Amino acid sequence: MPKTLNPFVLVAERWQPSRKLVERAALATVVMAVIIVVTGGVVRLTQSGLGCSTWPTCTPESLTPTPAMGINGAIEFTNRMLTYVLCAIVGLAIVAARSRDPWRRELTRLGWAQFWIVMGNAVLGGIVVLTGLNPYVVGSHFLLSSALLTVSVVMWQRTREGDGPVRELTARPVRQLSWVLAAASGALIVVGTVVTGAGPHAGDARHVHRIPVNWREITQLHVDLVYIVVGLTVALWFVLRAVSAPAPARRRVVELFAVLMAQGVIGYVQYFTGLPSVVVGVHMLGSALVWIAVLRVPLALRERPEAPAGTELPAQESAVPAGVR
């Protein structure tokens, strides 16, 4: 039977990236996921959400923005073009992971998961435009970006680990507390998304439908969740200290606490200064950094050493068709 001309296999036969390169490629996907969150915020905060009037083209007559559309069209179109940059970086991470010897299929699966999330979010972004910035669709668009950030962080973490059996570094109740912290942080992000959907920054200067709730009351709920997350973070630090958990795990919790404090200051500044666009944009960057810091906490409570020499890695079916593995 003739050998399948799989382009990924052909590249792997000719290129053997270092482990450090694979790790850096995975880190690049994390950075790009954060950039996408921030640039999406810039589109909304500059009222450029409908800078391009349709999708997938910018106008019914033009693929790109016209001079008459001004800066809003340029901002919206630039944000669309960043999707191609993101795809290129995710593609590099996939190819690097596939070409690394030995091949770790879990890494390529995580890379392909990012690719399909990007594709899904690109379509959802088009629906955002076609529905005139429907706040529920806009919120879903942001949450899917958070899902992309989650997968990219997990892939980055796995590039720095081996494929040996998982070894837990703390007792089960401690790990459960870390997952409660992650769940509370997820709820915080979801409620923050509702605040955005109900708040004054609609994404366009024209009338845009908003979520029909009092955004100030939802903001108070958001603040209450912040206190819960901070409280859980402090509690987890004391627990880790009490059980003499490894220093890296305690350090991750301290890093999370520092990011939460900075984000809290930014949040209060934006609230008491009338939600200036620049400060709101910094707050969106902070939300991405908080989520990264949260994810790193439970990931620091376990380790995966290198598989023993001569150990055959368990077979894993790839999540992509055979022709593109």
Rank of each mutant, 00 (worst) to 15 (best):
residue 3 K to E: 12
residue 13 E to S: 10
residue 14 R to N: 12
residue 14 R to H: 08
residue 14 R to Q: 13
residue 20 K to Y: 07
residue 26 A to P: 03
residue 29 T to Y: 05
residue 34 V to S: 06
residue 35 I to G: 09
residue 40 G to K: 04
residue 48 S to W: 08
residue 49 G to H: 09
residue 53 S to Q: 15
residue 62 S to M: 04
residue 71 I to Y: 08
residue 72 N to H: 11
residue 74 A to I: 15
residue 86 L to I: 10
residue 93 A to I: 06
residue 98 R to M: 12
residue 101 D to Q: 15
residue 109 R to H: 07
residue 110 L to K: 06
residue 113 A to T: 15
residue 114 Q to I: 03
residue 118 V to C: 07
residue 119 M to W: 11
residue 120 G to L: 14
residue 131 T to P: 07
residue 132 G to Q: 06
residue 137 V to P: 03
residue 139 G to K: 00
residue 156 W to S: 15
residue 168 E to R: 05
residue 170 T to Q: 05
residue 173 P to H: 08
residue 178 S to L: 09
residue 192 G to P: 07
residue 197 G to A: 05
residue 198 A to V: 07
residue 200 P to A: 14
residue 203 G to R: 13
residue 203 G to W: 08
residue 209 H to L: 12
residue 211 I to W: 02
residue 215 W to M: 14
residue 216 R to T: 15
residue 219 T to I: 09
residue 220 Q to C: 03
residue 233 T to S: 15
residue 234 V to C: 12
residue 234 V to S: 03
residue 248 P to A: 03
residue 252 R to Q: 01
residue 264 G to S: 13
residue 280 V to P: 02
residue 291 W to F: 07
residue 297 V to D: 00
residue 299 L to V: 00
residue 299 L to C: 01
residue 303 E to H: 09
residue 304 R to M: 08
residue 306 E to T: 12
residue 312 E to D: 07
residue 317 E to C: 03
residue 320 V to Q: 00
residue 321 P to H: 08
